[in-house]
């Protein structure tokens, strides 16, 4: 006859702790299949000097898209930009710079980026004079939005476009840069 002895309290606590630890370990190792609502993108405010620093050559081709939530063609082309970002993730640096009013930095700008599923680093440029910013980016920019520019790893302008981009053209220009040894 087997006698039924009560399980000691320390053993119960030990088992519970071990179980909890194993669950935590599992979560770290394997992300949950269905994530909670996506985090709202953080949009960082920058000024002219920050812009200058961002444009400094960093070893990879750099693609910058200047846009604004009030700019219809900017909104229209954004899905193409998101696709390009996914396609060249890790191969190029890609940032977006909004020229919206500062008041939109926590409202419409992150809201739109979230809707688009945009993952590229997002900035909002607050400048006292748009011409300063234009001069930093390229003299070829005539001041219209949207404006996209691709810099070579050396910092030279490889491609720019005022108005909506043609994704195939941008893809080709990026591949050209990536092919340069």
């Amino acid at each position: 006859m087997v006698s039924k002895r009560p399980v000691p309290a320390w053993a119960v606590i030990f088992i519970l702790l071990a179980f909890t630890a194993s669950m935590v370990g599992q979560r770290r190792a394997k992300p949950v299949a269905k994530p909670a609502a996506a985090a709202i993108p953080v949009v960082k405010q920058i000024g002219d000097e920050d812009l200058r620093a961002l444009i400094k050559p960093g070893g990879k081709p750099l693609l910058i898209n200047f846009w604004a939530t009030w700019c219809v063609p900017c909104r229209e082309e954004f899905p193409d930009l998101v696709v390009l970002d996914k396609e060249f993730s890790g191969k190029i640096d890609f940032i977006t710079i909004s020229l919206d009013d500062l008041a939109e930095i926590k409202r419409d700008v992150p809201k739109f980026l979230n809707e688009m599923g945009a993952k590229m680093p997002a900035y909002l440029l607050k400048t006292a004079d748009e011409n300063n910013a234009i001069a930093i980016v390229t003299r070829e920019w005539k001041g219209g939005l949207p404006f996209s520019i691709l810099y070579a790893p050396t910092g030279e302008t490889a491609y720019f476009r005022q108005g909506k981009i043609d994704p195939a053209t941008v893809r080709q220009k990026i591949n050209d840069q990536l092919a340069v040894k």
């Binding site: 700019c71 063609p73 020229l99 748009e130 011409n131 234009i134 920019w141 005539k142 001041g143 219209g144 939005l145 949207p146 005022q162 108005g163």
Partner: peptide
């Protein structure tokens, strides 16, 4: 001086 605004 460059004008800033919406593309035509």
């Amino acid at each position: 001086i460059n004008a800033f605004g919406c593309s035509i």
